[in-house]
């Protein structure tokens, strides 16, 4: 039996390695990506099966990846990126495995595992006992230090059922909330879509990505749905989160609670955000934000 690591989106696998190394079975990896990524993973894992996705999408090799794992089934650990989930789903279907997402910890227990994972988008943690095949989906977190495992990399081919015809780069630079070091979030304290320029200028002065609370994206449609943070949106962990006109309801704060520092601008000194922020300026955002933008520009 093997503990399988599925690596598809990038080399941010420290969280996955922590989980996998706590399990008793020998570790092997399936990598869907570049040869460089496969070699990187071979520094941490002794045996790597590599599918080159430079010409085919991950969806085209999913059944082949599932076949590799099904030939020697065991606990599977995968990341939360789109391609990782796609491959993990195919593996679960091929091996009859249960799927647990948002996994925080897994330890051997009797004939199975004791797994702790987040529930309800992060409102709670649940501990479960699992006996039988299982796919653990977890946050890969960061890129580990280069490893010294000197693992083997075995290229594998797939009869891809989907072909990539072309790719288009991002229309505009930036926009990756998940990896942004600084994020400005705007909420219903903003009165009009035309006022978005206020927070856009603040974000630019801070070198931050722009995000929002759910109503701004889902209700008002002022920003794309991919921009909203919270229980049903994105969860981020920047070094600085600046919340502008956001009251701080629990559903939003779950999306930003892992930020190292939270700063708020809010007109209501009793708003929930005040107790959940490291610093709060109590004041009218229409006065405070332009001042803050100016101060940051002068400072830079």
């Amino acid at each position: 039996m093997t503990t399988w690591l599925i690596v598809a989106d990038d080399a941010k696998v420290s969280g996955l390695l922590d989980l996998a190394r706590a399990l008793p079975s020998p570790l092997a990896a399936v990598v869907a990506g570049t040869r460089e990524l496969a070699d990187q993973v071979a520094g941490w894992v002794p045996a790597v099966t590599w599918f080159d996705t430079s010409a085919v999408p991950a969806s085209g090799i999913a059944s082949a990846v599932a076949g590799v794992v099904a030939a020697d089934p065991g606990t599977v650990v995968a990341g939360m990126g789109v391609d990782s989930r796609l491959l993990a789903g195919a593996v679960a279907a091929a091996t009859g495995a249960e799927v647990l997402a948002d996994v925080i910890a897994a330890i051997p227990s009797g004939d199975g595992l004791r797994v702790t994972h987040l529930l309800l988008g992060g409102l709670a943690t649940e501990e479960v006992g699992v006996i039988g095949p299982v796919v653990l989906v977890a946050d890969g977190r960061t890129v580990p230090e280069p490893g010294s495992a000197a693992g083997t990399v075995t290229p594998a081919a797939a009869d891809a059922s989907v072909a990539r015809v072309s790719t288009e780069p991002p229309a505009a630079a930036g926009g990756d909330l998940a990896s942004a070091a600084r994020v400005v979030g705007v909420g219903r304290g903003l009165k009009d879509a035309g006022d978005l320029s206020l927070v856009q200028e603040l974000a630019a002065a801070l070198g931050a990505e722009l995000a929002c609370s759910r109503p701004i994206a889902e209700g008002m449609g002022w920003l794309p749905t991919s921009s909203y943070l919270g229980i049903s949106g994105q969860r981020i962990a920047p070094s600085l989160y600046l919340a502008v006109g956001i009251s701080g309801q629990g559903q939003h704060m779950i999306g930003v609670r892992d930020a190292r520092t939270i700063v708020a601008v809010n007109s209501d000194a009793t708003a929930p955000i005040v107790a959940q922020a490291d610093w709060t300026i109590v004041g009218d955002l229409y006065q405070v934000v332009p001042e803050l933008t100016r101060a940051l520009l002068v400072r830079s």
Binding site: G96, A97, E98, L100, G112, R114, L118, L119, G122, L123, A124, T125, E126, E127, V128, G129, V130, I131, G132, P133, V134, M253, I254, R257, I262, A269, V274, A275, Q276, A277, D278, W279, T280, I281, V282, G283
Partner: peptide, 26 residues
Amino acid sequence: SIDNVAVTPISVSPVQPPSRGGRVIA
């Protein structure tokens, strides 16, 4: 359902937000 895995709930706990500085500038 075809299910060859036993999943037994053990416990559920609310996630507590980390404590913050709470500094208010007025």
